[in-house]
Design a binder for these strands. Structure first.
Lengths: 335, 335
DNA sequence: AATTATTATGTTAGCGCTTACATAACTGCA
DNA sequence: TGCAGTTATGTAAGCGCTAACATAATAATT
């Protein structure tokens, strides 16, 4: 699934889809049971059933819709013979909606169906059912309290001031090194044993071997990381580069690369390479712009099963030296 | 709010509303930031940005939409100049969607906006943000695994077999006596001190005073309750009647009333009365059908501030005696 | 009483999406 | 090789809802 990776950014889309699925499910049940009503009619009809004749606007507020929606739905239900409209004697503008005998009778027969729906949903979702309802209510309250747009714009104003900051490894950030990398590895490939070792013991596997690790911070939050591995004298590997997907586009990747390259120079390195995969288009683009040059072969003795791209850092316009032994490019895993 | 009381029955409706609110919020933010894109375009564009040129169907699957929706959205984005369509050389049926330069540039500028959206949502929802996302994912997985409609229909088949069952008080059910009543009290009124006492200590306040309590069970689950209070010699009060809103329509209310009335007779009671409120239309209707008759006055020395209806059990067609002292009917609380 | 707001509702155009269908291109098997 | 089935996509009609407007009744103010 792609949408979950976008977290808060695609909530509208996911909620809509889920909503449609619930509507469709309930409609299927109603059809199977010969209920004679549709899922979208339910809030209106149920409300009238409980509360008796009610004006359009009151219903609309109760069921969280616009008055237009209620008015139009009412027209349709009148045509179906489930509803009547009646003028409010006390106020000529108002229009009372009330169930007809047929409407009431339809609902009265639905008791067992509703119970079954509740139980069926609970069966399917388990304890998640309760949690979803609680989250929903909390969100509704939060939205009512203060429009989120305000907070977002405030955050945006703050963000355009603040910059992504690059810091070196600290023990308390170790877990981020693992989690940020595990996210993209799991999404696109699998976590190979060598990955797990490096990610779990960065001090031992990276720092003590003469490498370095950097983190990208935004407003104190860790949003990305990358490692410079010391392979052998003068030979370094750029690896374990990861930026939280929700924070792509802030330039964190570019800054991490720059930091790693600066460190490579500071340590007097001679060759800096990286291995990657053609599937990671955005990353490859980033590497190119930072001065890495695509090699026509994969690296001899590659560390990773997923590697089908080999790049060498060569900031000068002159291309980096090409290795003699030519290996056939592995084709990317076909989906 | 009315919809939350429907719990699992109105999920579609609530999710839809929430979805629309998120869309609207994000659109407002995009407009304020001059982003030049709309919230509904985001999943498609972001996906193309990350993955490069992709066919319509692949995009549709990734972002959880139909191919038609993607195709139509693509047309619109092509008109906006953000997208290009290109024929797949390898397969003449396919159509690759890819961002134009303008499209890519629009997205590249959005990094800080996305970060602000994430942070803003988290600010507003607090820890609920994470919980909502987790619940969402769990629901999506559950729906994918097995269609809920099947389970609901299975439950429905079982329910139409099984019946609502009425049982007397047991200590282990004490909490239901409280919770079921607290639900409607809180929804329509407030919990008065006398309510709290009776609900918290039913053994002391009801049973030991010569009263009785009944519960309605459905498939072992407690869905309703009601109490018969012993007021004085021969005088009983029907009170604390509550049925879980999601299980209205199964006849639990009627059965509870019948049980209480039978108990009243068994104990040789002479008068059985109840106090209620005009706002509880459905309940009043139920009382009438069970043989209670509306009195023109409220009860002298009423127990409850919310009471504006006084009914006496008089199963014969002959009306119950009317008290002498006439008190003005309190008008219902105007909303 | 006359006026100006406010409130309640219906109406219209349009958006986003779906379903159902149509069409074209590809695949596999006899 | 040819034909049936499958796959990828576009198109049309329609649904549910919204925003924007129109209208009428009521409430508030002068």
């Amino acid at each position: 699934m792609y949408l979950p990776s976008l977290a808060e950014l695609a909530l509208g889309s996911r909620l809509k889809t889920l909503s449609d699925r619930f509507y469709a499910t309930v409609d299927e049940v109603y059809r199977s049971c010969g209920a004679g009503i549709e899922s979208r009619w339910f809030p209106l009809m149920r409300f009238l059933w409980e509360q008796g004749p009610t004006t359009v606007t009151e219903v609309a507020e109760a069921i969280g819709q616009t008055h237009s929606a209620v008015s139009q739905l009412a027209d349709k239900l009148v045509r179906e013979g489930l509803l009547k409209r009646r003028n409010d004697p006390a106020d000529g503008r108002r229009c009372l909606l009330l169930l007809t005998g047929k409407g009431s009778r339809s609902l009265e027969r639905l008791g067992p169906v509703w119970a079954a729906i509740r139980q069926g949903v609970q069966d399917s979702l388990g304890p998640e059912s309760r949690r979803l309802l609680e989250s929903l209510q909390a969100c509704e309250l939060a939205l009512d309290e203060k429009p989120i747009a305000e907070r977002i714009l405030a955050r945006h104003a703050a963000l355009t001031q603040s910059k992504v900051e690059i810091v070196p490894f600290e023990p308390r950030l170790r877990t981020y090194f693992h989690d940020l990398n595990a996210a993209w590895l799991k999404k696109h490939f699998v976590i190979e044993p060598i990955d797990e070792q490096v990610l779990r013991e960065p001090e031992h596997r990276v720092l003590e071997q003469g490498g370095a690790i950097f983190f990208a911070l935004l407003g104190g939050e860790v949003i990305g990381t990358c490692a410079l591995l010391h392979e052998s004298a003068g030979l370094y590997e750029l690896s374990k580069m990861a930026v939280d997907e929700a924070y792509h586009g802030l330039g964190a990747g570019r800054l991490l690369l720059q930091a790693a390259i600066a460190e490579f120079h500071r340590r007097g390195g001679q060759t800096l390479f990286l291995e990657s995969s053609r599937r990671l288009k955005a990353a490859l683009h980033l590497y190119e712009r930072a001065g890495f040059v695509l090699q026509p072969t994969i690296r001899d003795g590659s560390h990773y099963a997923r590697a089908d791209v080999y790049m060498i850092y060569a900031p000068q316009p002159a291309p980096a030296p090409v290795r003699k032994r030519i290996t056939r490019l592995r084709s990317p895993h076909k989906r």
